Amino acid sequence: MAPILADSSKSNLPERDNYGNNGFVHVKNPHLDLLSEDILYHFDLGTRTHNLPSMFGDVKFVCVGGSPNRMRDFAIFIHKEMGLEGDGNDITDICAGTDRYSMYKSGPVLSISHGMGIPSISIMLHELIKLLHHAKCRDVTIIRIGTSGGIGIEPGTVVITDIAVDAFFRPQFEQVILDKVVVRNTELHHELAENLLHCSQEIEDFLTIIGHTMCTYDFYEGQGRLDGALCSFSKEEKCEYLQKAYNAGVRNIEMESSVFAAMCHLCGLKAAVVCVTLLDRLQGDQITHSHSVLAEFQKRPQKLIAKFIKKQLHLDM
């Protein structure tokens, strides 16, 4: 069995400065200094081919989500909410040269798709963090907005994650690096979560709570679903497991939060995960709401984040 190690990528800054008192995004890779050019392959960007500080130096908020269409819709929505010139419908995909991710910029807000699952968002985050570093961005807040399965809460509830946990309800992310298993912390920025919850209290349309989010490597068996092509457990075993998750403080399940929390924490980014629940997994496995209801659900995290960003920019007075 490969040895298990706590992550050794520690900052030399004092603990209170883990999010960077100087505001810059920290990269944890000394090899980058040896590169004559850093090619952000999956973004179709690079330090030699693009003036990254000019393009992205004013970015203060980065919002990421799985679907390219949803993140384009959010970019248009936040464009209008901030009162920027035009209706935002003419924004272009900065990553149009690749079909891996989509990226849109609306003033100081960057909106990026990350695909589905830990591997996809991990690749995106590596290049995003390097992009923010090369662009000399300061005081950046990054928020994942998305959908999830709820546990013991009404569908349509928005969950702000305090800690991302694994399938054993442990607040950690394990990754195999070379022949070692490296364990990283998955705690998200507490003050940011509280600020988001405070903003939600001004929105009467839906309920927002703070809770643990369980991150899995799979949508079907890994989340205890009975409706996949494979299933090796009973309905009773499934319900018992999900009840254990609820008792451990888990309120929703998705597939990206653990690596998102771990990487952002290490690199000095204030990060949050805000996901709407599409169903209560204690009541079933299949999403049965109509398309119109689901479309309205998916706008809820966007509304909350828009209110938060406007408050931070003093546009919501």
Score class of each variant (00 low, 15 high):
Glu254His: 09
Asn21Val: 09
Leu5Cys: 08
His314Arg: 15
Ile210Ser: 13
Met1Ala: 08
His265Arg: 12
Lys80Tyr: 01
Gly20Asn: 00
Glu85Cys: 08
Leu35Thr: 01
Asn22Gln: 05
His31Pro: 08
Asp179Met: 09
His31Asp: 15
Asp87Ser: 04
Thr47Ile: 01
Thr161Glu: 14
Leu132Ser: 14
Phe61Asp: 14
Glu187Tyr: 08
Ser8Ala: 02
Cys239Ala: 08
Asp99Gly: 08
Arg281Asp: 00
Asn247Met: 10
Phe56Pro: 15
Asp38His: 12
Ser258Glu: 08
Gly86Ile: 08
Leu128Ser: 13
Asp179Tyr: 10
Ile145Ala: 12
His134Gly: 05
Glu256Val: 15
Glu81Val: 14
Val273Asn: 09
Phe24Tyr: 14
Leu230Ile: 05
Glu296His: 10
Ser232His: 06
Val25Lys: 09
Lys299Cys: 11
Ala6Leu: 13
Gly211Ala: 14
Ile287Thr: 06
Asp38Trp: 11
Pro301Ile: 02
Gly156Ala: 00
Ala96Lys: 13
Ser102Leu: 02
Leu52Gln: 06
Leu13Arg: 12
Arg48Pro: 01
Thr157Trp: 14
Phe297Ser: 03
Asp179Val: 11
Asn185His: 00
Pro108Trp: 02
Glu154Arg: 05
Thr186Cys: 09
Gly46Lys: 10
Gly83Tyr: 11
Arg70Gln: 15
Ala261Ile: 11
His42Lys: 01
Phe308Met: 05
Lys310Gln: 06
His265Gln: 05
Arg144Leu: 00
Ile142Pro: 07
Lys270Met: 05
His212Ser: 11
Ile94Glu: 10
Ser102His: 13
Asp87Ala: 03
Gln312Trp: 12
Val109Lys: 09
His291Pro: 06
Gln243Ala: 10
His289Cys: 06
Phe43His: 04
Phe297Asp: 05
Ser292Arg: 07
Arg251Ala: 13
Arg281Tyr: 00
Asn18Trp: 03
Arg72His: 15
Leu125Met: 15
